[in-house]
Amino acid sequence: MTVTKEDELDGLKVIGRIVANTMLTMAKSIEPGMTTAELDGIGRALLERQGAVSAPESAYDFPGATCISINEEIAHGIPGERVIASGDLVNIDVSASKNGFFADTGATFRVGNVRPSLKTLCQDGKRAMEIGIKEVRSNKPIANIGNAIGRFAVDHNYTLIRNLASHGVGRSLHEYPTEIATWPTRSDRRRINKGLVLTVEPFLSKGGLWAEDGDDGWTLYSTPQAPVVQYEHTVVATDHGAIVVTRPG
């Protein structure tokens, strides 16, 4: 989607706040001993209360209102009977629509005490996302996003999952540009047009390179197996940088 009118930006900000607040409330609700289905139920109730519709459920018939991935699960985890424990890394990905506008956000949260290296990985995963967001500006190369994140990853001895990309969003959950690398690339010659709506969502890892399908047809795992974190915002490109529409408020 390309934003051309103020009311379009306003619509994105409305759904952006809804998904951001839903994710944050879910994260604050996490307690060791609860199941991912119980956590998803909290998210579903919040979305419904705000008049929003789960995007993965409506667009792809995903078996849950939100995606919840724990530890070795790096994305698209199905909410179910898995019990959350202290020391876990829990990724919550919330995307939804309202009044024809879509927004998408995600983050990895620590439950209780985790290993120091995982705490650092989480902090650096968020930094990697922010570094990518700073590259979003009208008329700049799309490849700048992945190249900047890639420099950060190399400098700090991280790897990036290279088949889970950022994407256009706005009038549907996934739209043009359909694959925006969050890793270094030389082949992408596209430029960011003013008003472009996209996600920035690097998957930062301590060794993982690829996302591999699991047995359930949805959940993705790291290959080679390694800790992975993901942080994601939906942003709008302007001449002065990115407007982040998925801030809580």
Rank of each mutant, 00 (worst) to 15 (best):
G217C: 08
G43M: 02
S29D: 10
G168H: 07
D40N: 14
D93M: 10
P116F: 07
N71H: 02
T36I: 11
R115S: 10
V229R: 00
M23F: 03
V154D: 15
V235L: 02
V83C: 01
F152G: 11
G112H: 03
A96T: 03
D188A: 06
P63F: 04
Y60M: 13
I68G: 07
A96I: 04
G241P: 00
D239W: 00
T185Q: 14
D10P: 00
T35R: 01
G77I: 03
G80Y: 02
F102H: 13
P116M: 06
K126P: 02
A107C: 09
V200H: 07
W183V: 08
V154E: 15
S172T: 15
G150M: 02
D188I: 00
S95N: 07
I74T: 00
K13Y: 07
I68V: 12
T66W: 01
D104P: 05
S187D: 14
L39G: 02
E6K: 12
T159R: 11
P248S: 12
R82D: 12
A153H: 06
S138V: 00
K206S: 10
I70P: 04
P202V: 05
D104V: 09
T2P: 04
A85R: 13
N113G: 07
R82Y: 12
F203Q: 04
T66A: 10
T25F: 13
W183C: 11
C122Y: 05
W218M: 05
L160A: 05
R191Q: 11
E135L: 01
V111L: 04
I149C: 05
R162L: 00
D155Q: 15
I243G: 01
